[in-house]
């Protein structure tokens, strides 16, 4: 590991100022991914700005029924939070489907969003990877890519985003709150992560020096039936091969609101806007769900060894959606 300086600011403003003084810095949250990448030599920050003690560790119910989650709330605490479990269950389920108990105790909400792909070529300095070093090529495209993207990939990068939590946040219309040199701003969670395009080195829309301060779950998805389901190679403690988060509101026998996102299919949580549009106003039948999900997955461009992901994601989505329909409606 390369040597680095360590600073521990006392406020969000001090953290932003510390970054301005140390442009080669990284913010340190739980460290479960960053410290690992530093050991591997993939990350080589000159300074670590420890933000784990900033006063961003609370979950707060807002007057309008929304929920603000501080960026330093640990994954295990968020998954166990009674309001999250009651009103946004897909988020709790997604968190509990990820990593191990030890990792969830350390990992933070903000850090979870900023974790890097687990593509083996990205993590191996001896291999080409455009995400790590643009222009070096993509080893995965013709190599080992069973876990890689089937939607939205580019000639430069076929990596997937590894987070379970982010998939639920996307489907639930959460917003990501940021603080940078220009002050605070927020972006929809569904737009926070990027597709690789010509800049696979950029995972998110975050600007240099910006700090994630929190995530807001909106009242509009609170209290609705929502669910997260994940397929993986073993029963526990593995990254997704495909996953689905969905929230659904059925009113007067038709779908009045839908949020659907796929995990492990793309460089970001894949918000299924086309499927959602197809469902709005339709009766929530198996045929309607099949039509909507097939519309969404029609653009899939599987690689040599990952075509299995398309039917797998389809089955997961159909099961999750059917489970969200109140039984009296069927």
């Amino acid at each position: 590991m390369k040597t680095f300086a360590y600073v521990r600011p006392g406020s969000v403003e001090e953290a932003a100022a510390a970054f301005a003084d140390h442009p080669g810095a990284r913010y340190l949250g739980g460290g479960t991914n960053l410290v690992d990448l530093m050991k591997l030599g993939v990350e080589r920050p000159e300074t670590l700005i420890d933000v784990t003690r900033l006063p961003l560790d609370t979950v707060e119910e807002l007057p309008d029924g929304a929920l603000r989650v501080g960026a330093m709330v640990r994954n295990s605490d968020l998954a166990a939070h009674p309001v999250v479990r009651d009103r946004w269950p897909a988020l709790s389920q997604a968190l509990l489907a990820g990593a191990s108990g030890q990792l969830r105790n350390a990992a933070t909400t903000g850090g979870n969003l900023l974790q890097r792909t687990r593509c083996p070529y990205f993590q191996d300095l001896g291999k080409p990877c455009n995400k790590r070093q643009m222009g070096s090529g993509c080893g995965a495209r013709e190599g080992v890519h069973r876990d890689h993207a089937v939607l939205g990939h580019s000639p430069h990068c076929i990596a997937t985003h590894p987070s379970d939590m982010a998939v639920a946040l996307s489907a639930l219309d959460a917003r990501v709150e940021l603080h940078g040199a220009d002050g605070p701003r927020s972006v929809p969670a569904a737009d926070f992560h990027r597709l690789p395009g010509d800049h696979p080195e950029r995972d998110t829309e975050i600007r240099p020096g910006e700090l994630i301060t929190g995530v807001v779950l909106p009242a509009a998805t609170g209290g609705l039936p929502s669910r997260y389901r994940k397929a993986r190679d073993r029963a526990s403690y593995a990254f997704a091969l495909a996953s689905v988060a969905a929230v659904l509101r059925v009113s007067d026998g038709v779908v009045a609101q839908a949020g659907i996102a796929f995990g492990a299919l793309a460089h970001r949580p894949w918000r299924a806007r086309r499927a959602e549009a197809a469902l709005l106003g339709a009766a929530p039948t198996a045929a309607a769900f099949e039509h909507a999900v097939d519309l969404e997955l029609a653009d899939a461009q599987p690689l040599r060894d990952n075509a299995y992901k398309v039917p797998l994601a389809r089955r997961l989505a159909l099961d999750v959606l059917a489970g969200l329909v109140p039984s009296a409606t069927l």
Binding site: Y6, R8, L28, G31, T32, V35, D36, L48, D50, T52, S76, G101, Q102, L103, N105, A106
Partner: peptide, 19 residues
């Protein structure tokens, strides 16, 4: 490498002592 930090189990190989 699991130990308890402030009573919670964590992987001690990924935690910087300074933090």
């Amino acid at each position: 490498c699991t130990v308890l930090v402030d009573g919670r189990r964590v992987n001690s190989c990924l935690l910087l002592a300074v933090a």
